[in-house]
Amino acid sequence: MQKSRLHSSRFRRFLRSLYTYKGLLLMMLPAIVFFAVFRYAPMYGVTVAFKDFKVKKGILGSPWADPATKYFIRMFNNPSFMRAFRNTLAISILKIVFTFPAPIIFAIMLNEVRNSAFKKTIQTVTYLPHFMSWIVVAGLMRVLLSPVDGVINDIIAAFGGTKIRFLMEPKWFRPLVVLSSLWKNVGWGSIVYLAALTGIDPQLYEAADIDGASGMQKILNVTLPCIFPTISIMFILRIGDIMSGGFDQIVNLYNSLTYSVGDILDTYAYRVGLVDFDYSLSTALSLFKNVIGLIMVLITNYVTKKLGQEGVY
């Protein structure tokens, strides 16, 4: 009795707060509707992966697949899927190994520069590629790497080498993916570390100077330990993103000759779904990718909290 009255008074207070702050709620309404329609409604659409989807019948009207996991069984038995899964992991890991440390090194190098005009210029130039789309970057690469009139092949030829058809050779695909990621993101990625570097107490460097530390020793014993928290957070975030190999980049760089090493889950799901119109299989692929991705994010967030850092989310 007592409890229910308490409850009802709390409920009434809640209703009154709804009324008092209806302005705030009304303000949020467009965003609430947007998220309901364009973010939550497609989540229901994942049921397509468990149905024999017919365009004419729609999602609700299409019959359930028999068995419900029919498309997942097809997926796991499909060599193209296994290939895409392997490629996704391989490209992601290659990118982490090479493009993760690069912005850190770059930030430390920039931080050593004393002339601020020079530093500013380098920053402006190296941040620029971040704003180019992958279509532009891929287009530039095609011009530079062309076996006919590309400057890279001209340099190879000038040193007596034979010209390479870079974008058609499977063995060059992954190196090019890594190099182009470096080109596009090394500058932009360094911003976070530069911010961390400016936060280091200069007294630490003075103390190191008094102890007679060389420039390299200062970097190893003062700089790196001071920015280590930032590095570990960024690393964990990157690991959480391991299932995306970079759709925009890959889809603009690969072609049928390089599918064997370049086709990732996202590009494969795209071709299955919107080129071959196998909606159910494509949805199953996306769902598989998203669930693994979600698990990775949850694990990495848990690890961040365990390490004593504030959780990322």
């Binding site: 659409g45 949805t283 989310y313």
Partner: peptide, 22 residues
């Protein structure tokens, strides 16, 4: 509740085909 409401789509999305069908 609203914070969570806006946060969830950051971690999970319907994927390509459901969005296309929508």
């Amino acid at each position: 509740f609203w914070s969570l409401y806006f946060l969830i789509p950051m971690f999970f999305s319907g994927g390509l085909i459901p969005e296309y069908l929508l």
